[in-house]
């Protein structure tokens, strides 16, 4: 599905956090959002997945008006992998992933064969099928994040939102999660911290600073030392490496402390 955001603004008591942002994710496209801490990336995504309500502007998933539709209608189409995966209560991995079926179920409907199959499939995709009866709260950060991704996959989403999905993960799981999402070939909007990973996986990037889109375009076109200096206030060199042919960003340690 295609995501269209038009002139989205969001304020909390007089403070404008998002200032008229417009962006677009086409069918099957992997789009990244980068920007420094506190630039409004997460807030922007929260507006899109309905946790907060925009002050003004429009958000559409194909023809579905996200602001006006019910959370259930949106959850049938859109999966979210965020950083909110701490719970005070204990569930097995399988129970957690089964929760992904929630938006598709009526009140008294029990889990069907189809639901079980979808959950199995999601668990296999993240390599957790053999651990499905383990307790979620005992897992490492990387495993937890894979469970949350499996839960989002069990939702059968046609669009995915990733809110810094690879925070706290070691490099193997960072690559695993992003490669898995990329292989789904569904529209994806991801807030990412690591510029090299963003360059590697995203077809298109939006750079956000102070709640506004600073620039946007293909990673190799917009990622320049000048941009990194402007956004992050860090000197760097950017070049294509021989090994993977991807962009590498080498940061200079000189910074005003």
């Amino acid at each position: 599905m295609k995501l269209t955001v038009n002139n989205l603004s969001f304020s909390v008591s007089d403070l404008e956090i998002i200032k008229s942002i417009s962006l677009k994710v086409n069918e099957g496209q992997f789009v990244g959002i980068i920007g420094p801490n506190g630039c409004g990336k997460s807030t922007l995504l929260k507006n899109i997945y309905k946790v907060t309500k925009p002050s003004s502007g429009m958000i559409f998933l194909d023809d579905l008006d996200i602001v006006k539709s019910s959370p259930k209608a949106i959850a049938k189409k859109m999966g979210v992998v965020g950083q909110f995966n701490n719970t005070n209560f204990d569930f097995t991995i399988r129970d957690m992933v089964m929760m992904g079926r929630t938006p598709h179920k009526k009140m008294l409907e029990s889990d069907s064969k189809e639901d079980e199959d979808l959950v199995n499939c999601a668990l296999r995709k993240v390599n957790l099928k053999q651990h499905e009866l383990k307790h979620f709260s005992y897992l490492s950060g990387g495993e937890k994040q894979r469970v949350i991704l499996a839960r989002a996959l069990a939702q059968e989403p046609q669009f995915l939102i990733l809110d810094e999905p690879t925070n706290h993960l070691d490099i193997k799981y960072q690559i695993q999660i992003l490669s898995l999402v990329q292989s789904l070939k569904i529209g994806t909007l991801a807030a990412l911290h690591d510029l090299s990973l963003a360059a590697m996986y995203c077809e298109y990037l939006y750079v956000i600073k102070d709640g506004q889109v600073l620039t946007h375009g293909k990673p190799e076109e917009i990622l320049t030392p000048a941009l990194v200096k402007e956004v992050y206030e860090v000197d760097c060199q950017i070049y294509q490496n021989e090994y993977t042919k991807n962009l590498v960003i080498a940061y200079h340690p000189n910074i005003a402390i």
């Binding site: 309905k50 946790v51 909110f84 719970t87 929760m99």
Partner: peptide, 13 residues
């Protein structure tokens, strides 16, 4: 039990 934000992404306000 997943918390407000996660519940919202599962379609529950």
């Amino acid at each position: 039990l997943m918390g407000d934000d996660a519940a919202m992404t599962l379609g529950i306000n």
